[in-house]
Amino acid sequence: MDTFELYGIDALLTEEERDIRDTVRDFGDKELRPHVATWFDEAKLPARDIARELGRLGLLGMHLEGYGCAGTTAVSYGLACLEMEAVDSGLRSLVSVQGSLAMYAIHAYGSDEQKQEWLPGMAAGEKIGCFGLTEADFGSNPGGMRTNAKRDGEDWVLNGSKMWITNGSIADVAVVWARTDDRIRGFVVPTDTKGFSANEIHQKLSLRASVTSELVLEDVRLPGSALLPGAAGLAGPLGCLNEARFGIIFGSLGAARDSLQVAVDYSLTRDVFDKPLAGYQLTQKKIADMAVELGNGMLLALHLGRLKDAGSVSPEQVSLGKLNNVRKSLEICRESRTILGANGISLEYSPIRHAANLESVLTYEGTTEVHTLVIGKALTGVSAFG
């Protein structure tokens, strides 16, 4: 029996949600899992090939309506993220950035022309998107960004740089946020535009099965139609981040579930002092404690998913989910590694890879500290931000 069976999770899901989950799990087990340790080890990912397969399955922008998107429930999207991250956080990041950041930005804030031009190809995985918000000196404080957009007649001219951008060097389109004379605005930037370049970041120790890049914009001239008309101020990019954070609430549990299952399986086959490691009380305590945290995290994720589908989830609740589930999932991955002993540092087993990835997930799209202060403000009514 695994943790989700122990908690009776299947009974809380619809038949369609179970079917979507099982389809993504089957795809991950057959097409991705056999290769992921090599991708992580070599820091190389065939992202375009994978994106086309994900598009064929309908996973890219799956929770959006129209333009070739599947229009599923938020819970179904969350379950898909969980199954992708059970293989590797980098693969879930590919889905999240494509669907919940780049596609969502165009879907929520773009013009009809922008939606028609980009969304069908992105949903099919034929066009890759990235999301340019974070800068080298401005992560938790995006409002301090230096990237700027200046009017020049009917055109816009963008200058600046963005850092830690998933999919950046393979993207066909970048949603770039820049400071204007008025407010922070978003722009749809084809990556073949003169003055745009993307440099892949190497020597990472986390999210190695993911393409991470720096974007550089040097006098990038765009027509007025490149502006996202529906977004003005930080509310636009923060709305996109809230979408992606929701996927992480589910996704991080996938890394934890896989790590725990690997640890349980190992403990049953590893003999220590002439009996299975699983037969020792301390091992069973570790397994039971991890299962409780994993199951509780799943119940929280499902609850927030139902609220999101009802249109009533708040940003503070998403912060709570992201804070708890990533933090607990990272603890589960680390503890699972201890059950494997020295074998646990090998890429033959997944827990240390998942733990290394979750170190990034713990930080991106809102650090632990930021989400803690969001929750603190919600409870006290007093902002502790600078």
Rank of each mutant, 00 (worst) to 15 (best):
T3S: 10
E5H: 09
L6F: 09
D10P: 03
E16Y: 07
R18A: 11
I20G: 00
R21V: 00
V24F: 05
G28C: 12
D29N: 15
D29M: 14
K30I: 05
K30Q: 11
K30W: 00
H35V: 08
H35Q: 15
T38V: 12
F40H: 05
D41Q: 14
E42Q: 15
I50W: 10
A51Q: 03
R52E: 03
L59M: 14
G61E: 10
E65V: 15
G68K: 09
C69F: 07
G71H: 06
T72H: 10
D88Q: 11
R92K: 15
L94E: 01
L94P: 00
S96T: 13
S100T: 10
S100E: 14
A102V: 04
Y104V: 02
Y104S: 08
I106D: 05
Y109T: 02
S111Y: 06
S111L: 08
A123T: 12
G125S: 10
G129K: 07
T134G: 01
D137H: 01
G139P: 01
N141K: 11
G144Y: 05
G144D: 03
T147L: 09
K150Q: 11
R151M: 10
R151P: 04
W156N: 03
W156E: 08
L158G: 05
N159A: 08
W164G: 00
N167R: 02
G168M: 00
V173N: 04
R179H: 03
D182E: 15
G195M: 00
F196Q: 02
A198T: 01
N199W: 03
N199Q: 15
I201F: 04
S206Y: 13
L207I: 07
R208E: 09
V211D: 07
E214L: 12
L222N: 01
G224K: 15
P229E: 12
C240K: 00
L241E: 10
R245Y: 02
R245I: 01
F246P: 00
R257D: 12
D258P: 01
S267R: 05
V272I: 13
Q281L: 12
T283E: 08
D289I: 06
M290E: 06
M290G: 01
E293D: 14
L294G: 06
N296G: 15
G297V: 03
M298W: 05
L300Y: 03
A301P: 01
D309C: 10
A310H: 10
V313N: 04
L323T: 02
N325C: 11
I332S: 04
I332F: 03
A342M: 13
G344N: 11
Y349E: 00
S350F: 04
H354I: 07
H354K: 15
L358M: 08
E359D: 09
E359G: 01
V361F: 02
T363E: 13
G366E: 06
T368Y: 09
L373Y: 11
T380L: 09
G381C: 13
V382M: 11
G386Q: 15
G386D: 14
